[in-house]
Every structure is written in structure tokens, then in C-alpha cells.
Design a binder for these strands. Structure first.
Length: 462
RNA sequence: GGCGCGGUGGCAGAGUGGUCAUGCAGCGGACUGCAACUCCGCGUACGCCGGUUCGAUUCCGACCCGCGCCUCCA
């Protein structure tokens, strides 16, 4: 039985899918005008773990994550670059897929793009106008009438009168109420646009998610997720549009990831304090970045720092070290263990990855102990369990030697290193310890660390 | 100002009404030719003040501090 914290009800609830055995989930994806940063990675990884875990628990998960490929920022950036906006968005989508792959994020079941759903968007807007939840303003814009939806504010716990009183909502003449938001934006002369009953224009941001999610998953679906800054207004507006258009509950469970922070401030585009995934991957292995993200609860805030990433790396190394030199069995050959049960118990409780990782470490400790005391068969079994639980978190699927040796640093080839290790072994055999240590020191200078064990000497790049 | 989240050992980070997170760093021991890795052991953490309770870090209330949203942002 899985429990999930639901932003809508502000408590953990036992998850019950609409259709037994099936999960329909929608996550707000990227607006593709720039490279993804670590905040995006957080959401990507968090819902990747949710998907992997639920599938492992036997659910048939349909995971839809959209791409916003038309919006003001995209058009502005394309103009700055003097390129067609589709070239910009294609490039950024390719880059996003590369980043995802490196981070071990599985592809979603579907990845709808706003520009492919213009007809659905227009149809939904029409429905809203017909039912008086929306109105065409004189200037070609179409707005949603917030006051026409009784439940407005139920997700973000905001009161409409507070919003209306707030000075930060700009008064726009075409709007009937300052809290109303655009469903359709009229296009200027040269801008990218699509024809519509209200003239040429393009969709507003919120409506595209309503149109795509209901089209792909139905009027009501199980889980809707996204980053913390989408809660308001984006998700609140999605609820308003969708529930007014369909007459049904939009989403049962709302999930929101925690923010990534830098120096106690939220990492964000507007503050300019963001680190892109690709620049972080220049310095840290992708799995270390993933491990760092998975090491804390998906809802909590996480501080990005070099120290924290480096520490995550050392922690992950411990796990891989335990796997080194033991070939796991087929997972099916090892029955469920106490560790499996503990792992599932923790993950069932709102995807407690940080807790689940402690099980991984317990397993590593078992493996090391078994090997040290010569219980090879037990070590093999524990290794099998460690790898299969790791997979649920998207971790520990590399060949351990590859993990330790694939580091980009260092000039020496694997052959050079092996030769030096052999030379050192010969020196040790001849009791020439000074010579042996000289070789070891030379390797350390090249960033290569030697690990001696009863089975022989292995190496890694540090 | 409104709404929401959080303050755990040197650091990171789970969790619980009454033995245990876990990792990193540190210390002592084992292993080693010496190291590294590994193993064993160690350090009386739960913001502050009241309350409930036989007992609270965990429940309740007040306070202090931090963060997020209220405008585009994952």
C-alpha cells in the first residue's frame, strides 16, 4: 500500500488508482528555450523514481510529460538568436533528452508538445466561453474568468479576495478582473501564430497543460506533478480550466518536488543563480548527481554545493566498492529478503528514498562482511539484492570497474596502469618495498588509486 | 501582510511517544611490508519556553529563526 503526500489535502493519503492496477500520471515538463538546470533535474529524477517504483510494485504506469514549445520566452530567445523558433526548440529538446539519458531518467510514455495540440486547445477554450467561464476581450485575447470557478484557490490555499487585493497583480484593461489569466493571446503582425475564432494568436501557458493532459489521460487522472514554483498560479489555473471545461474532478493526487537552493536561495532562472545539468556533468559523474538528488526526500529543499556533491560521490563509491568483484545472480533466483521488505516499507511511505538508501548501505556492509569472512555465496546473494534494489532508484546499474575507472581525469591508459601494477607486484614479491611504493606514488600522482585485496590489486581514478 | 514548509550530533540527511537511521569527516583497534580499501568499536543530536504524559526530539500551545509561494520560473 503506497502512501503519497497530496498537496491538495496537505496530508499523506493511501494511493488508490482510479482504475485498479493502472496509474495515469502527468508531470509538467520544460519550456524549451534554454538548457535544463539542476532544478529541472530534480523533477525529472523525482518522478522517474516514482514511475520506476510504481512499475516495480506492479502498476501499469502511463507517464505523460509535456513540452512547452511555444511561449513568449521562446519567441524572444529565437529572435535574439535570429533563428526560427522551431530550430531553437528542436535543439533544446535534443539537449534535454541527452541530459535525461545521462541521468538515467527513463523516457515518459508520451511527450506531447503544445504546438501539436492547438486544435484541442482551441476546442477547450470554446467550451469555456460557451459555459461563461471565459470571455473574448476586445483586443483578440481570451481570458479565463477566475470568479466563475468556485473552487479557485483550493490547491494553493489562496483566497480570491486576497489575490484581488494584492497589489502585485497588474491591472490589465482588457481583463474583467485582475486575477483573470490568458487562455489565448492575440498575435502581433509578424509573430508566430495560429488562426482561431478570435483571430490569429497563440495559446496561453496554462491551457496547454489542461488540453494535453485531459487529451492524453482523460478528464480525471491519478497524479499530477511538477516543480514547487508551478503550484501557483500554473496548477491552480489548470484545475480551474479543466474542471470548468469537463465538469469533473481534474486530478486526485497533486505532487510537488522541493526546490534546489544555492546559498540559501532558490535556484531559478529569474535569479540567474542556476547551474545547468551539462555544466555540472563536466565535473561530476552523472550517477553521482542522480545519487545526490535521490539522497534526500523529494519534497524537501536541497542545497546545491560542491561539497555536498563530492560527499554524495564518496557515499556512492562505498556502494560500488561492495559490488566490485562479485557477479550477481539473476534477481529471480534470490527470494525476497528482510532488506527488500524494509526497502519497500520505506518507499511505500511517500517514496522515502533517503531512508531506502540506508538499506542499500546496510546491504553493502553485509557484502563486505561476508566477503571478508569468506562467505562467497552469501555475498553473491546480497549483491544481487543490492543491484535489484538499486535499479528501482535508477542506481548501481554500471559495471563497478567501469564506474571507478571511467573517470575522465588522467593521462594513463588502462594498459599502462595494469603494467605498472604488475611491476609493483613483482617488486613486492622480491621484497623491494621501496620500489613498490615508488610505483604506487607515481600512480597516485596520475590520479590512480590502488586497492589491494586477497584477490589481487584493482585500481580506480580518484 | 496572506498562505504554506522547515529548524536533528562537525557536516549531509531519515525517523520515532520509552534499545538502532544512514552516509561523510574524526578518533581507537583489526587487517596490511607500510598504506589505501574493508571489518569491529566510539562520540549521551534533536531551536527556545510552557503544557499533556509514568515518560517527548516525536503530541499540543506560544515564541525565535530560516525558506518558499503570493509576478515568468521545475
Amino acid at each position: 500500500m503506497i502512501k503519497i503526500y497530496n498537496t491538495l489535502t496537505q496530508q499523506k493519503e493511501t494511493f488508490t488508482p482510479i482504475e485498479p492496477g493502472k496509474v495515469r500520471m502527468y508531470v509538467c515538463g520544460m519550456t524549451v528555450y534554454d538548457y535544463c538546470h539542476l532544478g529541472h533535474a530534480r523533477v525529472l529524477v523525482a518522478f522517474d523514481v516514482v514511475t520506476r517504483y510504481m512499475r516495480n510494485r506492479g502498476y501499469d504506469v502511463t507517464y505523460v510529460r509535456n513540452i512547452t514549445d511555444i511561449d513568449d520566452k521562446i519567441l524572444r530567445r529565437a529572435e535574439e538568436n535570429a533563428e526560427p523558433f522551431t530550430e531553437l526548440t528542436d535543439r533544446m529538446i535534443t539537449a534535454m533528452h541527452e541530459d535525461e539519458t545521462k541521468l538515467g531518467v527513463l523516457s515518459p510514455s508520451a511527450e506531447p508538445r503544445a504546438t501539436d495540440y492547438i486544435a484541442e486547445i482551441i476546442a477547450m477554450i470554446n467550451t469555456l466561453i460557451e459555459s461563461d467561464h471565459a470571455y473574448a476581450a476586445g483586443n483578440g485575447d481570451v481570458y479565463f474568468s477566475v470568479e466563475s470557478f468556485e473552487g479557485y484557490g483550493k490547491l494553493s490555499k489562496k483566497k480570491l479576495e486576497d489575490l484581488l487585493a494584492g497589489a502585485r497583480i497588474d491591472v490589465h484593461e482588457a481583463k474583467r478582473s485582475p486575477a483573470d489569466f490568458a487562455l489565448w493571446k492575440a498575435a502581433g503582425d509578424v509573430e508566430v501564430s495560429w488562426p482561431s475564432p478570435w483571430g490569429n494568436g497563440r495559446p496561453g501557458w496554462h491551457i496547454e497543460c489542461s488540453a494535453m493532459s485531459t487529451r492524453c489521460l482523460g478528464d480525471t487522472f491519478d497524479i499530477h506533478g511538477g516543480g514547487p514554483d508551478l503550484l501557483f498560479p500554473h496548477h491552480e489555473n489548470e484545475i480551474a480550466q479543466s474542471e470548468c471545461a469537463t465538469g469533473h474532478t481534474f486530478v486526485n493526487t497533486w505532487m510537488h518536488a522541493g526546490a534546489i537552493r544555492v546559498n540559501k536561495e532558490k535556484m531559478s532562472k529569474s535569479l540567474g543563480n542556476f547551474f545547468t545539468i551539462r555544466e555540472i556533468l563536466d565535473t561530476y559523474p552523472a550517477e553521482v548527481v542522480r545519487f545526490f538528488l535521490v539522497s534526500s526526500h523529494y519534497r524537501s529543499q536541497v542545497d546545491y554545493s560542491e561539497d555536498n556533491l563530492a560527499e554524495a560521490g564518496r557515499s556512492l563509491e562505498r556502494l560500488y566498492h561492495a559490488l566490485r568483484g562479485v557477479v550477481p545472480e539473476n534477481s529471480g533466483d534470490v527470494p525476497e529478503t528482510e532488506h527488500d521488505r524494509r526497502f519497500f516499507e520505506l518507499m511505500d511511505d511517500d517514496f522515502n528514498c533517503a531512508g531506502a538508501i540506508s538499506v542499500l548501505h546496510a546491504l553493502a556492509n553485509d557484502i563486505n562482511q561476508h566477503r571478508r569472512e569468506g562467505r562467497d555465496n552469501e555475498a553473491k546473494k546480497a549483491t544481487t539484492v543490492l543491484v535489484r534494489l538499486g535499479e528501482i532508484l535508477g542506481l548501481l546499474q554500471q559495471d563497478p570497474d567501469g564506474f571507478f575507472q571511467a573517470n575522465t581525469a588522467g593521462e594513463l591508459s588502462a594498459e599502462d596502469i595494469e603494467a605498472k601494477i604488475q611491476a609493483r607486484a613483482d617488486a613486492r614479491k622480491a621484497k623491494d618495498f621501496a620500489g613498490a611504493d615508488r610505483i604506487r606514488d607515481e600512480l597516485i600522482e596520475q590520479g590512480v588509486i590502488l586497492d589491494d585485496s586477497r584477490e589481487g590489486t584493482s585500481w580506480r581514478r580518484g
